[in-house]
Amino acid sequence: MPHKTFFWFIFPSLAAMFLFIALPIVSVAFQSLYIEHEQVLIEVENCGPFGCETETVVDNEATAAIRQAEPLGRFNGLGTYFDRGHLATAEISEAWSTRESFSGFLSEVMNLPFYRALAFTLTYTFVCTPILILLGLAVALGVNGLPKAFKGPTIFVSLLPMIITPLIGSLILFWMIDAEGIFGKTLQVIFDDPELSLKASPALTWITLIVYGIWSSTPFAFVVFYAGLQTVPEDTLEAAMVDGASRWERIRYVVIPHLMPLVVFITLIQLMDNFRVFEPIIGFSAQANASSLSSIIFDDLRGDIARFNSAAATSMLTIIGVAILLTPVLIRTWRDFNRKRA
């Protein structure tokens, strides 16, 4: 296809992506270098019956005026990146030099909002992904063995947790694990602890969110594996059987190698999706005990005063995280592409 035709075909799509994905990234980068104006302070002299005293007060009008005139704020360089809300370099070196034990240092670090969010995001991503792949494979193997008439309805039900809006899915579970909801109540009875609440401690909240993540993404792995199972070569399976391979050995040495490319595909998609975990935290009202990179950006933007610059700096750090996560994939695809051309 000539360059010119190609250009006109791709133009609308390219323009949309350029204007609303590429430029916003530039805008975020730009915003992150600024910081909101400080409040304008003025000295007022209050004269009462006992003499005069000067007092410093905030000039709200002037503050509003200057914020209105320059909504971007004043230039701050990389300052926002290193402040307490983000990389917190000063706090970390302080905590390191005064540390008494390594775990003490870690808990200091975990009090910093950015590291807390990063820790949860990474834990969520790297715990959910392998578990949901194994679970999806198990469900796919199970469904594959069902009589034909049951397969359709089973797949229908299995798709539900994935197709459902993440916020709705997490709300549904949130109501059930409420101390007065059915799961919450059952857990209280099982553990014989009427005070037990899954919302109370950070550890329990993390577990709840991870369980939600597995519940909502297992169907994806299941569907992909199930489709893969339909193409497993029957001849190879029978040959393995003639050679005396047990059922487990057939799965281990024939089926799983056949599904390996799909594992790579699911891992890639799930790493990307789990890294931006956001809605469950809102749905479970879990901000107090767990926050992700996306949710702290949301909180910055949603606060009483929107903190654009802080949100922008976190966004930039998140984008860098995505880039690191994707690098191995991109390198691999690049190599594949060159091999195909050669």
Binding site: M17, I21, V26, R276, L301, V322
Partner: peptide, 21 residues
């Protein structure tokens, strides 16, 4: 490839780029 990178972008990071403009 660029589209793949864009696909991985958390939506909220883009939103924080839109709001002020």
């Amino acid at each position: 490839m660029i589209a793949l990178v864009f696909r991985a972008m958390p939506h909220i990071t883009l939103v924080s780029g839109y709001l002020l403009p």
